[in-house]
């Protein structure tokens, strides 16, 4: 017994180190595997407040690019407005407007913190559950997917970026509707990898990749990336595709949080399927 106490005394510093290190790793694992609001992240009052103040200061630097993005977006929206279309036939047509039900709602958010230089990148947004943001909502930028909300506090929310090694997003080829998953390889913030496209599909460089709509987080058909290079590795059945992201993640300033009005319905249906035939 005395020896044991002496042993622990002698190596007390080492045991302290192991203890504190265990605590740190507990925090890492907890952060990796559980979604939910924990206090220790950038959505808390102090960190969020500092980021928000700082982004107010530095906002002007990117103003030119932001204006450019916004006006491009406005152009696209204007082009899709009913007024920009001309009726081809002059006969009367019945417009059954009630067959359309609003599925997605968008909330504007400012990016107050963003990183692209880590293996697992996150963004912090200036809106939280006071503005209706919930865990698991999608976030889109001026051109395509940005990420998925992970933690929400009253006034801030933290988003798992597309530039995160563990983030997988279901996308499809615009041309042929073949779907695969988009996952970052941690190398270049402008490029991402498309997996699970079978090798018999015809591809060309510059093909547009859009959201598949399967995950019901993002609206279907949102252009997200274009194919840059592709090859079939020896003895594989699937392509290895590198895609260029359409969003410039270094310059994201305004993004939209996507709320899906029917997501509860889809989730209930899918969870019922997993539980068996009841």
């Amino acid at each position: 017994m005395r020896n044991l106490i002496a042993f622990i005394r002698k190596y007390s510093f080492f045991f302290l180190f192991v203890g504190v290190e265990a605590l740190a790793f507990y925090l890492i694992l907890k952060n990796n595997h559980f979604q939910g609001s924990s206090f220790l992240n950038s959505t808390n009052k102090v960190a969020g407040g500092i980021y928000s103040k700082y982004s107010d200061l530095t906002e002007y630097v990117n103003l030119k690019e932001v204006n450019n993005d916004l006006s491009n977006e406005n152009k696209l929206l204007r082009e899709n407005q009913l007024g920009s279309f001309v009726k081809v036939f002059s006969e009367n047509i019945i417009v059954k407007d009630t067959i359309y039900k609003r599925k997605y709602l968008y909330t504007k958010a400012k990016v107050i913190n963003n990183s692209t230089n880590k293996q697992n990148n996150y963004l912090t947004l200036s809106i939280g559950f006071n503005n209706g943001v919930k865990n698991g909502m999608g976030v889109i930028g001026p051109s395509g997917i940005v990420g998925v909300v992970k933690d929400v506090s009253a006034n801030y929310s933290s988003v798992v970026s597309v530039l995160h090694r563990e983030s997988k997003i279901s996308v499809k080829l615009k041309k042929s509707d073949y779907f695969g998953s988009m996952q970052w390889d941690g190398e270049d913030y402008r490029l991402t990898v498309l997996k699970d496209i079978p090798n018999h599909v015809l591809l060309t460089e510059g093909d547009t990749v859009v959201t598949s709509g399967y995950s019901s987080i993002f609206p279907e058909g949102l252009p997200t990336a274009i194919i840059k290079t592709f090859e079939v590795p020896e003895g594989e059945n699937f392509y290895e595709i590198k895609m260029q992201l359409l969003n410039d993640f270094r310059q994201l300033t305004y993004v939209y949080v996507v709320k899906n009005n029917t997501s509860m319905e889809v989730k209930q249906l899918e969870s019922g399927r997993e539980n068996g035939d009841d």
Partner: peptide, 13 residues
């Protein structure tokens, strides 16, 4: 640092 970068425990360890 972790609190700010949302990398809980990484820099701490």
């Amino acid at each position: 640092i972790d609190v700010f970068t949302d990398t809980m425990g990484m820099h701490a360890s």
